[in-house]
Design a binder for these strands. Sequence first.
DNA 1: AGTCAGCTTGGGAGCGCTCCCAGCACGGAC
DNA 2: GTCCGTGCTGGGAGCGCTCCCAAGCTGACT
Lengths: 342, 342
Amino acid sequence: MGRPASQARARTLEEVAAVAGVSKSTVSRVINDSPAVSPAVRDVVHAAIAQTGYRPNRAARNLVTRRTGSIGLIVSEPEGRVFSDPFFASMVRGVTGIVRERDIQLVLVLANDERAQEQVLDYLRDGHLDGALLISSHATDPLPRVLIEEGLPAALSARPLTPMAISYVDVDSVAGARLAVAHLARRGCRRVGTIAGPRDMVAGQDRLAGYREGLANARLPADERLVGYGNFTTSGGAQAMEEMLARADPPDGLFVASDLMAVGALTVLAERGLRVPQDVAIVGFDDSVAAVEARPPLTTVAQPVEEMARALTLTLLDRIADPDGPVTSRIFAPQLVIRDSA
Amino acid sequence: MGRPASQARARTLEEVAAVAGVSKSTVSRVINDSPAVSPAVRDVVHAAIAQTGYRPNRAARNLVTRRTGSIGLIVSEPEGRVFSDPFFASMVRGVTGIVRERDIQLVLVLANDERAQEQVLDYLRDGHLDGALLISSHATDPLPRVLIEEGLPAALSARPLTPMAISYVDVDSVAGARLAVAHLARRGCRRVGTIAGPRDMVAGQDRLAGYREGLANARLPADERLVGYGNFTTSGGAQAMEEMLARADPPDGLFVASDLMAVGALTVLAERGLRVPQDVAIVGFDDSVAAVEARPPLTTVAQPVEEMARALTLTLLDRIADPDGPVTSRIFAPQLVIRDSA
DNA sequence: AGTCAGCTTGGGAGCGCTCCCAGCACGGAC
DNA sequence: GTCCGTGCTGGGAGCGCTCCCAAGCTGACT
């Protein structure tokens, strides 16, 4: 069944060239899809590659191309938070898909505290990575700005608070929130509240803004006592719900800026004996597994996370290939997924 | 503030050597901590390194040492499941700590379906990685065995079902479950049930075995109707709880093999109007954030995940340094964390 | 027939590093 | 005084690859 890999000496370009009866330059051209190779020779070389089981040596290639062939997935939030977010899992799946077919390494980098951020910066400056995917949503995160200044290709998983010369992908959160509120209004809700995200996250701000627009569009009254804030986690949602119930009569409709927070709200509502959707109709955001598993299953705003992740990755790769190219960003349209909670 | 990194040409050994007035061999020795350098020269070279801001070129070094300087974090379960598990976040934090101080790259690899597994195997065989950390708990996972056969250094995040020549770290799940049941018995519970993990996971089996031992130790009756099975997720726990309640009177004590499942059980109990801990005392497993955030906060069995992750990583690095060295594994002692649920 | 452009191909330098080997200086043993 | 370790240092080959440059060959055009 073949020897252990550690003993199987790797083939080299030279050997393939010998087998194919051509020079190593030619083999190199074939490998790199250079057009300057006649079809006949190309076939011969391909056969030789297959026969020898040749695989290019990454280190040797990197040495001369001055590329590393790897990009970083930089998580600059408390890792517990990020990983537990279903958004992250889908993101990784999307990124991995692209990265794998291009034979690029995805290096996981945690930059969750100040010290780590410094180290990460050093790391990036040392040129260990060709580029970076930044997973972070806090508007106050200094990393994006620093990366631009350092000239390292980067792309963000969310729109930065202040416009900057960096690519990003994001869902149209404002539109998503409007969608949710419109649905609630259509259902007949009159007192529509929201549990918004943190005020220092763009997603938090946008979804709140969209909620307000939605109210206005539906000619529904705005009641600030029905606006709560959570940190996008389950417990944050529960707490916000409790606080809202403490200061005002229950709303009959509620837009919650994340499924996780909605689940938290759900438990509080259940404790209070309020039925969903009869007493309070709820719309979440993300369409994560949490939405499916919630009781009742959540009506929610879906974002095409995997597609977004693919776009994000491709954007970064474009930028790596052409560092002076244009900064391109894409906003994806959200979609309402109707289940039982509203 | 300095030119962009992309323009700042990297220093080389040669340049440092020139500055220090020595040969590049000597500089290389200093960098690699060779003892064969006189203290005086060493100091001069260190000064030159600092002055020039020299950083070794990873590719060049890899080319000659035939190492890649990176290890894989191989996630061979559905990524949604793994990432959402708080265990994973702590694991990553521990691994990252070690890896960062050794300047090793952590490459994230998803092997969540058959096709991906094949690709991952190819990838490993190509020598892109010096070794692999395997995050997977399904006893049926073929990857560990394959890695051994390929001769690629690897370490598992959990004890494999069948003993094999591969290092791993794990918590003593049996002891942990015994701890939990003993606590329940001490509290006065007489009808102690369990929601166990999947039968094809070692952790599931061990915790169930520990539960049984705990019952025996406390001279408590074993009632198979009080044994349920979940897949370590919240919804799995809820479902198992419902099924148990459907086929038997509620237990007065319950050991749940994971915090996430315990949270699911909690919601079902709440729906049924059963109070925790008064009617049913519950002990979870993992001491994750979910335990802290649960209502009531969960008494649970803690495992020193971060320390385990560090040990796991060090084990792998040892193995990479000396592939023929002994296979060492470590079992960590669990600890009971008492909160409000039992 | 001669010239030249255009297409393929081969040769070989060089990327930055490690590590083998040789050389040198010094000091102790004879 | 000679010889031989021992400790430190420098020289240089070579890792596998890319890419520049030159050379060969074809066919079209003058």
